[in-house]
Simulated assay, not measured.
Amino acid sequence: MTDTQQAPRLAQAAPDRDLWPALRRGFRRKCPNCGSGPILKGYLKVRDHCPVCREPLHHHRADDGPAYLTILIVGHLLAPAMLTAFTMWQPDPLVLFTGFAIGTVALSLYLLPRLKGALVAFQWARLMHGFGKAG
């Protein structure tokens, strides 16, 4: 007895979307489709659609991903820098804390909306969570 299973076919042939240009656009906080319209309304609120090309963006499921990635990146950059600064110059602990607290907050505030845009653009490029559906 032979089992002839075929690979499941996609319901719709979705157009290919380039990942890296979409990620660059999203990191710049621009629409992953056209690259000119803003993806965010305010600091972290994603628009329902692009004001330029009308691409729907309400499908996104960014949730806690941008915050997790921000913590991951900031921690991996500043923890070794703090260790190096402490072992090389041995500053006063209050000076070390103040400098790295300001650096941590500044880098986190810079990265968070950019990583949210990149994550939404990643979902758009990979047709995740309804981005591939027509309409």
Score class of each variant (00 low, 15 high):
1 M>Q: 13
2 T>R: 14
2 T>Q: 15
2 T>V: 14
3 D>G: 11
4 T>R: 11
5 Q>S: 15
6 Q>G: 11
6 Q>Y: 13
7 A>T: 15
11 A>Q: 10
12 Q>R: 11
12 Q>M: 02
12 Q>C: 01
12 Q>L: 07
13 A>V: 12
16 D>T: 13
16 D>S: 14
17 R>F: 01
18 D>E: 14
18 D>T: 11
18 D>S: 14
19 L>K: 02
20 W>N: 08
21 P>L: 04
21 P>T: 07
21 P>V: 04
22 A>W: 04
22 A>Y: 04
24 R>P: 03
24 R>A: 15
24 R>T: 09
25 R>D: 02
25 R>P: 01
28 R>M: 11
29 R>N: 10
29 R>V: 08
30 K>P: 03
30 K>D: 12
31 C>L: 02
33 N>E: 15
33 N>Q: 15
35 G>R: 00
35 G>I: 06
36 S>E: 15
36 S>C: 08
37 G>F: 00
37 G>K: 05
40 L>P: 03
41 K>T: 08
43 Y>M: 05
44 L>N: 06
45 K>H: 13
45 K>A: 13
45 K>Q: 13
47 R>I: 00
48 D>I: 05
48 D>Q: 14
49 H>R: 15
49 H>T: 11
49 H>N: 12
50 C>D: 04
51 P>Y: 05
56 P>W: 02
57 L>M: 11
58 H>F: 14
59 H>E: 09
61 R>Y: 09
62 A>K: 00
65 G>D: 06
66 P>C: 06
66 P>K: 06
66 P>G: 04
66 P>R: 04
67 A>V: 10
68 Y>E: 00
69 L>H: 02
70 T>V: 10
71 I>N: 05
73 I>D: 00
77 L>E: 05
77 L>S: 08
78 L>T: 05
78 L>A: 08
78 L>N: 04
79 A>I: 14
79 A>K: 09
79 A>H: 08
80 P>C: 09
80 P>G: 06
80 P>Q: 08
81 A>L: 13
81 A>E: 09
82 M>K: 07
82 M>N: 07
86 F>I: 07
86 F>T: 13
87 T>E: 12
87 T>P: 01
88 M>H: 12
88 M>V: 14
88 M>I: 13
88 M>R: 14
90 Q>I: 07
90 Q>N: 13
91 P>H: 09
91 P>S: 08
96 L>D: 03
96 L>I: 06
99 G>S: 02
100 F>H: 01
101 A>Q: 09
101 A>P: 02
102 I>V: 15
102 I>A: 15
102 I>G: 10
105 V>M: 12
106 A>Y: 09
106 A>V: 14
107 L>T: 07
107 L>Y: 03
108 S>G: 15
108 S>L: 07
111 L>Y: 01
111 L>T: 00
111 L>A: 02
112 L>G: 03
112 L>P: 01
114 R>Y: 10
114 R>S: 04
115 L>F: 07
117 G>V: 05
117 G>Q: 00
118 A>Y: 00
119 L>M: 12
119 L>W: 10
119 L>Y: 11
122 F>Q: 02
123 Q>R: 05
123 Q>A: 07
124 W>V: 01
125 A>L: 05
125 A>Y: 02
126 R>S: 11
126 R>L: 13
127 L>A: 10
127 L>W: 14
128 M>I: 12
129 H>R: 10
130 G>W: 11
130 G>N: 07
131 F>L: 06
132 G>I: 03
132 G>M: 04
134 A>H: 10
135 G>P: 01
135 G>E: 12
